[in-house]
Design a protein around this nucleic acid. Structure first.
Lengths: 339, 339
DNA sequence: AAAGCTTTTGACACCGGTTTCCTTTTTCGC
DNA sequence: GCGAAAAAGGAAACCGGTGTCAAAAGCTTT
């Protein structure tokens, strides 16, 4: 009987079942060359002892551990959490665990910090969320360090094995189509900040969609924001002061769209009667303001699951997915234009 | 010269600096009994090689790893992320990493799932966020498994070493005082759901504060919600139908308060002129609805930092803190009652 | 200069798994 | 029934660190 107050090891299992360590190891790893007899015998002992292999020991012997890292910087909290849930869906029945690492995009030492982190933890692979997922130097770093990676992005920033992407252009297109179908012709855009791939994609998608409908976008109908609430408010304020006022606004994310709601209220404009607003992300705030916001949502959780599978089970059919469809969530912030 | 394509190990360092493994180990661990000479010599080699100790090997030898776990279930996303940031503040310069594990409070196998998780990962310690932090069986489980733990709670659910707590009663008291100072006498409460310690504390705090001011709370001024947006909406709708309508509402969290905003609008009541609303949590939604919501916030990030320190550096002065002050965030959802 | 301390260092076993390589047993064709 | 090939299982080394304990070195003291 092994000392009862310690957790059992492979040696205890081997001794009790009268086989060698190696045989127990074979059982654990479902090795094919094993007689049915010994397998069941050993499995019985494992169950009886409640033996669980020590992941640190395995990690040492296998020269890689069972840790996935999640690198993120300031996207909205709900997205991060949904993605985490997705990753967990993928690893739940495995021995993998998820290590999170918020990083500071603005720190000059970010890349060095991440390098130290990777060196120290020797992760099996990392998942990188936008906006830092757009940093190619970071992907390069992972490659150099022999650390697997998958990025989440708003376009095909990388090849299929290394990305789970939304198709932002097409998503924006859906939003614009919706507005146009309702009769809007004067549609304004609140863009995201320079340097964000997502902002770029959404702008391009917007312009393309408008052009496809043969609609003009006046220069004063395009204002840039920072993805933050206040910037959306400021941008919308400017839009509403335009000589030829737009009847609808597409904002590149929900937070700015919420700011636009706020601006409309300050200008005594009712949403959606006087102004339709449509956001992007389907974050919680979209459902919790008044009126509930129509927005474009992406399947973040599924993307998290697929991203994790790409690393830990690349042959799983679900790991093949790399481009994810979005859907327009229709709520109450959009209506036909007045007049 | 060690094979240049492999990461250097302690053996490489030992060989190159002409000392034994053990001596290198002493350098790494800042052992006191070491001559200054050897220390600098070995440190030079370490720097030159870019050697980083393998955490899995250390974990194996030390019989404990350097992983902190974060168990959480459905509090608002921003709280989870802020807490994570706090934990990271604590572990940034250490070799610890943070493993996250969302759990499902409603699953009958939750406790077993967590047990398996702890068995498998052999965490150094776990941090438990509300509401599951209120589950005493879970704390008991950690104890049994020899896994350190710290809970975050709305009251002293546990002793000082195992908790970072807010003082919800006192926090609610601040909110009530604020309303009373402005002249409100008829203040309603939207409670959280049965079985949540936080809901209990906030209710008790509310009742005590009202009593302290000599104010009555009519039965129809107390409605229970589920902490969700819709429930806040429903609760406020009922409150606004009361024969003697309250002039102010205190909601036990921001999400329900946001629902109350919504209900007020449906009843054509203006916030704050016709109805003052005050929330709890200072979640992002509070700042992003119109009008911006007055709410009570707690220092989640600091709590995360302290919680992590309690586990990894209990002697650090910052690890001693266990009760955290809240502050009232005054925005625009509160005004003196009309008439 | 020898004895007696204290400080510094190293040899070796060990943590709990996996891998390599070799031996033993079983199976099977003839 | 025999020999060969295949299957099953074990011994020992190894992954990269740390703990124990004893030896070596340095420093006083007499």
């Amino acid at each position: 009987m092994p000392k009862s107050n310690k957790t059992p090891t492979i040696n205890d299992v081997a001794r009790l079942s009268g086989v060698s360590k190696k045989t127990v190891s074979r059982v654990i790893n479902r090795s094919a060359l094993l007689s049915e007899d010994t397998r069941t015998k050993v499995e019985a002992v494992i169950a009886q002892l409640g033996y669980v292999p020590n992941p640190q020991a395995r990690a040492l012997a296998l020269r890689h551990n069972f840790l996935l890292g999640l690198l993120h910087d300031n996207p909205n909290a709900q997205t991060v959490l949904n993605f985490q849930e997705g990753v967990l869906d993928a690893i739940r029945e495995t021995e993998f665990a998820l290590v999170v690492r918020p990083v500071d995009r603005h720190s000059p030492t970010m890349l060095d910090d991440i390098r130290r982190f990777l060196e120290q933890q020797r992760l099996y692979g990392v998942l990188i969320l936008p906006p830092i997922s757009e940093n190619d130097a970071l992907a390069q770093l992972c490659l150099e360090m022999g650390c697997g990676y998958v990025r989440m992005g708003s376009a095909m920033l990388d090849d299929e094995d290394h990305i789970v992407a939304s198709n932002d252009r097409e998503m924006v297109s859906q939003a614009v189509d919706h507005l146009v179908e309702l009769g809007h012709r004067k549609i304004a855009l609140i863009e995201g900040p320079e340097g964000f791939r997502s902002a770029f994609e959404r702008r391009e998608g917007f312009m393309a969609a408008m052009q496809a409908h043969g609609l003009a976008v006046l220069p004063e109908w395009r204002v840039q924001g920072t993805y933050r609430f206040e910037s959306g408010m400021a941008a919308a304020t400017r839009l509403l002061e335009a000589a030829d006022r737009p009847t609808a606004i597409f904002a590149s994310n929900d937070e700015m769209a919420a700011g636009a709601f706020h601006a409309a209220r300050l200008s005594d404009l009712k949403v959606p009667d006087d102004l339709s607003i449509i956001g992007f992300d389907d974050s919680p705030i979209a459902a919790h303001i008044w009126p509930p916001m129509t927005t474009v949502g992406w399947p973040v959780r599924e993307m998290g699951r697929a991203a994790a599978l790409k690393l830990i089970a690349p042959d799983d059919p679900a790991a093949q997915a790399f481009r994810f469809p979005a859907k327009l969530v229709k709520r109450l912030s959009v209506a036909p234009p007045r007049a």
